[in-house]
Write a protein that binds this DNA or RNA. Structure first.
Lengths: 135, 135
DNA sequence: AGTTGACTTCGAGCGCGCTCGAAGTCGCAG
DNA sequence: CTGCGACTTCGAGCGCGCTCGAAGTCAACT
């Protein structure tokens, strides 16, 4: 409905990216100003953002890191390493490995708590499963 | 070091509870004023909090709920049901079951993201494992 | 040519979950 | 009886991660 069909070959507006990835345009700009994007998206002649394939892929990675609890500050540091180019691979690996370790620990913790919660649920279920049974 | 050894039989000060459960006295009072505790701890004649066994057990549960991401508001609602006494068991069960469902979904999601992150890690590891190998 | 609506930057505001500090009271060891 | 440290209430402040709104520019359809 918008334009006919022609697309500048893999180049999305901020609204398109937002919809595809399930975040707001505000959040996308926020990520950019916070330095979470390794390369700022290119701009049209009139200053509008155009997101390419690489931008998309990176933002998906940012979402994964966020969704697993990595703080914005740390993602920025990781992005800075990527921006710095070749030679920072060991540090990037260290960042991701440390994050992975924390996430695994947290998964374990949550799983343990969940066990206790499930036990509580089972308690209520048993109690309610035999409601009118005094004798 | 503090007193000799006598304890009023399972009755802890706020500081003792805080230390045992790994949270701050500020947080404990906050939970109380926010209505997360089913029964407010008893007080000494001079107004100081005394936590009993039951208080302890409940706070541990609150910690589990918090650690699995249940918002304070929802814990308050659950606590209200418990405070309301017998007859609210079905609703309590519903609250916990819904929470459990969300937590499981979130565990799945995080696990999936973690897979992708691990793949990235493996990529760096492979790259670094064979550092000087142009041919 | 005009209208609509998506885009831009900027700064303020918000919801959450505490954290902190002030000011005052009290328990208890020396 | 004098300290001193742990307790009390209260309200303000904070770190995080966005969210929201204002004010203006621009694209492109009719």
């Amino acid at each position: 409905m918008t334009s006919t069909e022609e697309r500048p070959a893999a180049s999305l507006t901020i609204a398109e990216v937002a919809q595809r990835l399930g975040l707001s345009t505000h959040a996308l700009r926020y990520y950019e100003t916070e330095g979470l994007l390794v390369g700022a998206p290119s701009r049209t002649t009139t200053g509008r953002r155009r997101y390419g394939e690489d931008d998309l892929r990176w933002i998906v990675m940012v979402q994964r890191l966020r969704a697993t609890g990595m703080p914005v500050r740390e993602i920025r540091e990781y992005a800075e390493l990527v921006r710095a180019g070749a030679g920072t691979e060991r540090q990037r690996l260290a960042v991701l490995t440390a994050h992975r370790k924390r996430v695994l620990a947290q998964l374990d913790e949550v799983t343990a708590h969940l066990g206790a919660i499930t036990a509580k649920i089972d308690g209520y279920a048993a109690q309610l499963g035999a409601p009118e049974r005094p004798r």
